[in-house]
Simulated scan of single mutants.
Amino acid sequence: MRLLVVTSQFPLAGEPTRGRPIHQTLRELARQATVRVLSPVARYPRWAQPSSYLFRAPDPHAAVTDLDAVWPTYPALPALTRPFNGWLCARAIAAEARAFAPDVILAYWLYPDAFGAQRVARRLDVPFVAGARGSDIRVRDAISRRLTVPVVRGADRLLVVSADLGRLAVEDYGADPARVRVIANGCDATIFHRRDRAAARAALGVAADAELVLYVGRLVAEKGLRELVEALRTLRRVRPRAECVLVGEGPLQAELAAAAADPANGLRLAGAQPAPQVAEWMAAADLVTLPSYSEGHPNVLVEALACGRPVVSTPVGGVPEVVDASCAVLVPPRDAQALAGALAAVLARDWDEVALSRRFSRSWAEVAADTLTACREALAARGTPQRPGTE
C-alpha cells in the first residue's frame, strides 16, 4: 500500500520531539507499507508570531527523521486566517500528494491538516482516513469546530486514541460509529522500563533524598501547570524535600522560569528532551503528574507506568482508560489544593514498581498494524483495488 500521511504533529527542525507518538507509529508503518509524510507548517510573518506555541520555521537541510518526509509551508496570520487555513493547507500539499499517487491518505490533526488532506483525497479520488488526538476534536472556537465537522463525518475511517474520544466524535460531531476505530497509543519497552533510581539521580544531578515529582509535556496552561506550581508550594510546607522537574517547552516557559528562579518553589525546568532522556527522568522520579484540563490518550502516563512510576492526574478524556486506583490518584482539574493532597498521598505510599511496569505491553508495531488495517478497510469499502507491488 502507498500511504500518504499528512500531519503537522511531526518532528520539526528545532523541535525534534514534536508529535512523538505519531512519529513512532509512522516509523513502524513504514516497515509494513510505502509511507510518505507531508508535514504542513503555517508560515507566519516575523511581526505576527503566534502566542499559542513556539513557532519554528522548517529547515529542509535538518535531518529530524529517518522517514521519507517533506515540510510544505503555507502563509498564515494568528486568528485571522484560521477560517482559511484548511484550504491553504490543501493547496500547499496538493502537488506533492499528486506526485506520490497514494492508495490512501491518512491525516492526523483534524483542522487544518485533515481538512486540507480530505480535499486533496477527493481530488485524487482515493480513500481518506482521519486521526483525532485529543484537543483537535475538543475544539473550543466556533470556526474551527464548524470546519472540523465535515472531516469527522466524511472520513472513510476515523481513528481515535481512546473510547472517550470515539464517544465524543459520535455524540457531538455525528460520526458514523461503524467507521470509528479506537487505536490506543503504544510504548517502546526498549526505552521505557524499570531502571535504578539512584543511578538516574546521580546522572541527572538530583539529590538522593529528594522527593521528585516529574511533569513531561508542553508547557501550556491547559496542562494544569499553574495549579501544579501552587500545589508544589503547599506540598513543600509539609514535605520540604519535595521538588518538581518540568520536561518540555511551550508558551508558559518564561512564566515558569521566573517561578523556578525562586529556590523556595523547588521547581526546575529541564527543557524538551528525547525519549531516552525522558525515560531517565522517569527513573529518577518518585511519581509522574499530569494535572490536565483535557486529554486524549496521554502517552506519558503509559510510559510512566512502564518505568514503574505511580501517577497523579485528572479524570479527563482517556486518562481513566490508562490508570486506576491501583497505580494512580486522580483529582479534579483546576484544584491546586486537591492536587497537593494527592501528591503528598502518593509520595507517602510504598508502590510495587514491578506490578506497575507490567500494566502495559502494547508496542508501536501493534499500533501501526491496527492503523494499516483501518486503511485497508477504507480502501476495500471504496471498492478500489490495491495496485500490485505496493504492499
Rank of each mutant, 00 (worst) to 15 (best):
T73M: 12
R20G: 11
T17S: 13
P150I: 05
P320G: 11
L347T: 02
T373D: 12
G341D: 15
F84Y: 14
R334C: 10
M282I: 13
S292D: 00
Y215D: 02
V37R: 08
L29H: 09
E222A: 09
L256T: 05
D66P: 02
R36N: 05
P78R: 02
W364K: 00
L38W: 07
D286T: 13
R309E: 06
A92C: 12
V149Q: 13
L77K: 04
R2T: 07
R218S: 10
Q49M: 15
V170R: 13
T234R: 15
T371C: 02
P16S: 08
T190W: 00
D335P: 06
P127M: 02
V311L: 00
D125C: 12
F128M: 14
A221T: 12
G217S: 06
Y293I: 03
V120P: 08
R359P: 00
L232K: 01
A94M: 08
T7V: 00
G271S: 05
R46T: 13
R359N: 04
P72K: 06
A203H: 09
L219Y: 11
A57H: 12
A365C: 01
V323W: 04
A207H: 12
L343W: 10
G271K: 03
T81F: 03
E377Q: 15
P83I: 05
P310H: 05
V41P: 10
Q118C: 02
L26T: 11
R197G: 06
D176K: 07
A198W: 08
N265G: 02
E303N: 05
G154H: 11
L147I: 07
L38D: 08
Q277C: 03
R138Y: 15
G248M: 01
V35K: 04
T384A: 14
D262F: 05
A381H: 14
G224E: 04
V220G: 12
A231L: 04
R359V: 01
A380R: 14
R359D: 00
L80K: 02
S51Y: 13
R56C: 05
R122Y: 09
V161T: 15
V129E: 00
L26K: 09
L38N: 03
G318I: 07
A381P: 12
L287I: 02
I137N: 04
L267Q: 05
L124C: 12
V213Y: 09
L228Q: 08
A107F: 05
G186H: 10
G318C: 07
V120M: 13
G19T: 03
R179A: 09
L67R: 00
D286P: 11
L212M: 14
Q118T: 00
P263H: 02
I22K: 04
D176L: 06
A381T: 12
A79Y: 15
R43E: 15
V302C: 07
E321H: 07
Q273R: 15
C327F: 01
R359L: 11
D352L: 09
W281S: 01
L228P: 01
I191S: 02
V288F: 05
P240C: 09
V180P: 06
L4E: 08
